[in-house]
Nucleic acid binder design. Structure first.
Ligand SMILES: [Zn+2]
Ligand SMILES: [Zn+2]
Ligand SMILES: [Zn+2]
Ligand SMILES: [Zn+2]
Lengths: 136, 136
DNA sequence: TATAATTCCTCTAGCCACTAGAGCTTCAAG
DNA sequence: CTTGAAGCTCTAGTGGCTAGAGGAATTATA
């Protein structure tokens, strides 16, 4: 049996975050000590590790809810898991694409030879999207 | 003089967002009609366009506050503007790097030949970071 | 000019995924 | 048995908006 602090140390999930996941229904309410403190089992530990890793990989809490549900049903086909992952991959890729467009513009902007604000390329570009090379 | 709706159409910033920017102190409180409705000048329009474009480029509201302040002082050196932009560029680049690591892992994960959850690579990987190739 | 349609007003609350803090209780070591 | 760490609940704040209620003002049409 682990206290919430031990669980936190082992998973790297902060204590208030563990309680938040409980409130969100991602983890079951654990047993309590006589004095009402949470006591977790190994199952609780591995479930939280799953959540932690999924968050690290950028899945939303909603996605994780679905993935956890699936993981409780080993006999089911895994196509649902794949579509959650594929959708997430797409999201990540479109975020990357957007950030790369930003990166390009920001790199261009920061090549400013002027010394004062009146002629600064940064300020000028922010004031006028027409000076940009791409859409965003 | 523009109404808030006209300003919104010209800049592409939604009406509640304009009011939000006013509340946050990014734009001055505009004059009002006899019936208390906001009336904007061309100056208000260009200030809001500046904000819009800066947001599109991913700058935070705090950054924009600084950039707007600078843009009101054309005689100042533009080094402050450059450091805001450079910092932002760094942020963008580290976000890209992080997302690319995610992308790689997600691509790997989604190569699953199993048909059911019990043997699914997606679920297995989420349960065990040891199966990952990179840190995240 | 009367009425109808549209726009605008303020205020509050919700989104996501946490994070911080107040004020109190329980636990574990010595 | 005392003390200090760790736990409890509850509320509120983060960023950058967005939605909705309930009412007032403006504009367009008849
Ligand atoms: Zn410059
Ligand atoms: Zn632009
Ligand atoms: Zn699979
Ligand atoms: Zn991993």
């Amino acid at each position: 049996m682990f206290s919430i602090g031990q669980l936190s140390k082992r998973t790297g999930v902060k204590i208030p975050t563990i309680r938040y996941y409980e409130q969100m229904g991602l983890i079951d309410e654990p047993e309590r000590s006589e004095g009402n403190q949470r006591r977790y089992t190994k199952d609780g530990l591995s479930r939280l590790s799953f959540i932690r890793h999924s968050r690290d990989l950028g899945f939303s809490v909603e996605d994780i809810r679905g993935l956890l549900d699936l993981s409780q049903h080993p006999e089911k086909p895994c196509s649902d898991a794949h579509s959650i992952a594929a959708q997430h991959l797409q999201d990540v890729q479109s975020r990357i694409a957007k950030l790369r467009r930003l990166e390009r513009e920001l790199k261009r902007i920061t090549k400013c030879d002027a010394g004062n604000v009146a002629a600064c390329a940064v300020i000028e570009t922010l004031a006028d999207h027409g000076l940009c090379e791409t859409e965003h």
